[in-house]
Amino acid sequence: MHTPTRTWILAAVGDLVLILVFAAIGRDAHARGDIVTGAFATAWPFLVGGALGWMIARAWRKPLAIRPSGLLIWLAAVGVGMLLRAVTGQTVVIPFVIVALLSLGTFLLGFRVVAGATLRTLAQRQRRD
């Protein structure tokens, strides 16, 4: 059974994992060495942005909603992430911004679409039983 608390915790963990996966895929694609610790080094600006997006959207209220939660988390993850990368001397180039927008959008919004549909299906099955 899904409680509101359990749902937002699972959504927050899902966002965290997906941002780390994004960073790990990027590091692996560019042969940047240690994928595990390197993924954290690459991911931290996006994680900070995602956390800020959670706070702005108050996403714990509707963590699987595309609007506003998913959109704000996604855009904050990319926007703040790129800003933090720039101020800390990390690479920020247009192709990377585009890849981050597309990848994190697919991950963070797609996750919400799949999770929401799954929960709706489970709820319908429970009502029938």
Rank of each mutant, 00 (worst) to 15 (best):
A12S: 13
M82H: 06
R67K: 06
A29I: 04
A77P: 07
P45R: 12
M82D: 13
A29T: 00
A51D: 04
V13Q: 02
T118Q: 12
V78R: 02
L18T: 04
V97Y: 06
L101F: 14
R6M: 14
L83S: 12
H2L: 15
V80H: 11
K62L: 04
L84Q: 01
A51K: 07
V97S: 07
T88E: 05
R120A: 15
L72S: 09
H2M: 15
L47Q: 08
I9K: 09
R61Y: 01
T106H: 06
V92G: 05
G110C: 08
V21H: 03
L72W: 09
G53F: 10
R127I: 09
R6S: 14
L75Q: 02
A86G: 07
P63E: 06
G89M: 08
G14F: 03
F46L: 09
K62D: 15
P95K: 00
H30M: 00
V48K: 10
G89Q: 03
S69Y: 05
A77W: 10
Q126N: 11
R120D: 12
A59S: 15
A12R: 10
L18W: 01
V36N: 01
G38E: 05
G50M: 04
S69M: 09
F111Q: 09
I98E: 10
W44S: 07
I35F: 01
V21T: 00
L83Q: 10
V92I: 11
G53V: 08
D129G: 15
G79P: 09
I98A: 09
V78L: 01
K62M: 13
L84N: 02
A86Y: 13
A86V: 10
Q90C: 11
Q90K: 13
L71Y: 12
L102Q: 11
I35N: 04
I25G: 05
K62A: 15
A59F: 06
A77H: 04
I73A: 10
L75F: 14
A100H: 01
T7Q: 13
G14S: 14
W74F: 03
A117N: 12
M55R: 12
T88Q: 00
R127G: 03
V78S: 11
V92K: 06
G89W: 08
A100K: 00
I98N: 10
A65C: 03
P45V: 07
A57G: 00
L71V: 15
R32I: 05
W74A: 00
L83F: 14
R61M: 12
L64Q: 03
I98R: 00
L109E: 10
G70S: 06
L20D: 04
H2C: 02
F107Y: 11
P95Q: 10
L84Y: 09
R27N: 10
R125A: 15
G79R: 09
L119N: 07
A86F: 11
I25D: 01
W74M: 09
M82C: 15
R125V: 08
W74Y: 00
R120K: 14
A39P: 08
F107P: 02
G116T: 08
M55W: 11
W44L: 05
H2F: 15
L71S: 02
P4Y: 06
A29K: 11
D34M: 02
A43P: 09
L83K: 02
P95N: 08
V92R: 05
A77V: 06
L52E: 01
L109G: 07
R112C: 03
T118V: 14
F111D: 02
G50H: 04
R112K: 08
T106I: 15
L84V: 01
F107D: 05
A57S: 01
F22Y: 11
A31G: 13
